[in-house]
Amino acid sequence: MPTIALRPATRTDVPEILAFVRELAEYEKLAHEAVATEAGMTEQLFGERPAAEVVIAEVDGQPAGFALFFHNFSTFLGQRGLYLEDLFVRPQYRGLGLGEKLMVHLAKLAVERGCGRFEWSVLDWNEPAIRFYRRLGAVGLDEWTVQRVSGQALRDLASGEVGGGLR
């Protein structure tokens, strides 16, 4: 029986975190979007104002999976929430319950931290992940769609240079 352990990531884990991110991006057919750097990730995770946290899952001392998460806020609840940005288990470690252990760990953190929600997004074609999340009790929010502004569109919006200018 393999030994499974979950632990908070440290600064020295950044190269492994980036490896997980790239493997996840490859799986999601989004490798071209995975442009994070070691320096940037180190600053964002372990700098003066960390933007997110990471939990590493290990099997017999080897990095096998990770979850990257951060807090958001619900004005309707008047409470912060926990948002899961990435969950990934390497293929050779799937079937050992690592994904569920990571999700249970994050749910416990959310409850301990007084969060009113634990939420995440999943690609609509990722049926195995959707089945997994439904098994854990997750409910899809079909009436909501994700909106995003990034790259040049973000810079244009920040400067007011969109749709003929903002009023």
Score class of each variant (00 low, 15 high):
residue 2 P to A: 05
residue 2 P to F: 02
residue 3 T to C: 12
residue 4 I to K: 04
residue 6 L to V: 06
residue 9 A to L: 06
residue 9 A to M: 08
residue 11 R to A: 14
residue 12 T to R: 12
residue 12 T to W: 00
residue 12 T to E: 15
residue 15 P to R: 05
residue 16 E to I: 15
residue 18 L to F: 08
residue 20 F to P: 05
residue 24 L to A: 07
residue 27 Y to F: 15
residue 29 K to W: 08
residue 29 K to D: 09
residue 30 L to M: 15
residue 30 L to Q: 15
residue 31 A to P: 00
residue 31 A to H: 07
residue 32 H to I: 02
residue 34 A to R: 00
residue 34 A to K: 01
residue 35 V to G: 04
residue 37 T to R: 00
residue 38 E to C: 08
residue 38 E to L: 11
residue 39 A to K: 07
residue 40 G to L: 07
residue 41 M to S: 05
residue 42 T to Y: 04
residue 43 E to D: 13
residue 43 E to G: 05
residue 44 Q to R: 14
residue 46 F to R: 00
residue 48 E to D: 08
residue 48 E to S: 06
residue 51 A to F: 10
residue 51 A to Y: 03
residue 51 A to K: 12
residue 51 A to S: 10
residue 52 A to S: 13
residue 54 V to A: 14
residue 57 A to G: 03
residue 59 V to M: 02
residue 59 V to A: 01
residue 59 V to W: 01
residue 61 G to V: 01
residue 62 Q to R: 13
residue 62 Q to M: 09
residue 66 F to I: 00
residue 66 F to W: 10
residue 67 A to N: 09
residue 68 L to I: 09
residue 68 L to F: 06
residue 72 N to V: 00
residue 73 F to R: 05
residue 73 F to T: 08
residue 73 F to Q: 03
residue 74 S to L: 03
residue 77 L to S: 11
residue 77 L to I: 06
residue 78 G to A: 10
residue 78 G to T: 07
residue 79 Q to G: 01
residue 80 R to Q: 13
residue 80 R to A: 08
residue 81 G to P: 01
residue 81 G to Y: 04
residue 82 L to R: 14
residue 82 L to M: 13
residue 82 L to E: 02
residue 85 E to N: 15
residue 85 E to Y: 08
residue 85 E to D: 14
residue 86 D to R: 07
residue 87 L to M: 15
residue 88 F to W: 10
residue 91 P to I: 12
residue 92 Q to G: 09
residue 92 Q to V: 11
residue 92 Q to A: 14
residue 93 Y to K: 01
residue 94 R to F: 04
residue 96 L to K: 06
residue 98 L to C: 07
residue 98 L to T: 06
residue 100 E to H: 11
residue 103 M to Q: 02
residue 107 A to L: 07
residue 108 K to H: 14
residue 108 K to T: 14
residue 109 L to D: 04
residue 110 A to S: 10
residue 112 E to N: 13
residue 113 R to W: 15
residue 114 G to Q: 02
residue 116 G to R: 01
residue 116 G to S: 03
residue 117 R to C: 00
residue 118 F to G: 03
residue 122 V to N: 08
residue 122 V to P: 04
residue 123 L to C: 07
residue 125 W to H: 10
residue 125 W to D: 04
residue 125 W to F: 14
residue 126 N to L: 10
residue 128 P to V: 11
residue 131 R to T: 12
residue 136 L to V: 04
residue 137 G to Q: 06
residue 138 A to F: 15
residue 139 V to A: 15
residue 141 L to M: 13
residue 142 D to F: 06
residue 142 D to W: 11
residue 144 W to G: 00
residue 146 V to A: 14
residue 146 V to R: 14
residue 147 Q to K: 12
residue 147 Q to N: 09
residue 149 V to R: 09
residue 150 S to Y: 14
residue 151 G to M: 05
residue 152 Q to L: 14
residue 152 Q to N: 13
residue 156 D to Q: 13
residue 157 L to T: 03
residue 158 A to M: 06
residue 159 S to G: 12
residue 159 S to D: 15
residue 159 S to A: 15
residue 161 E to P: 04
residue 163 G to F: 12
residue 163 G to Y: 11
residue 164 G to H: 04
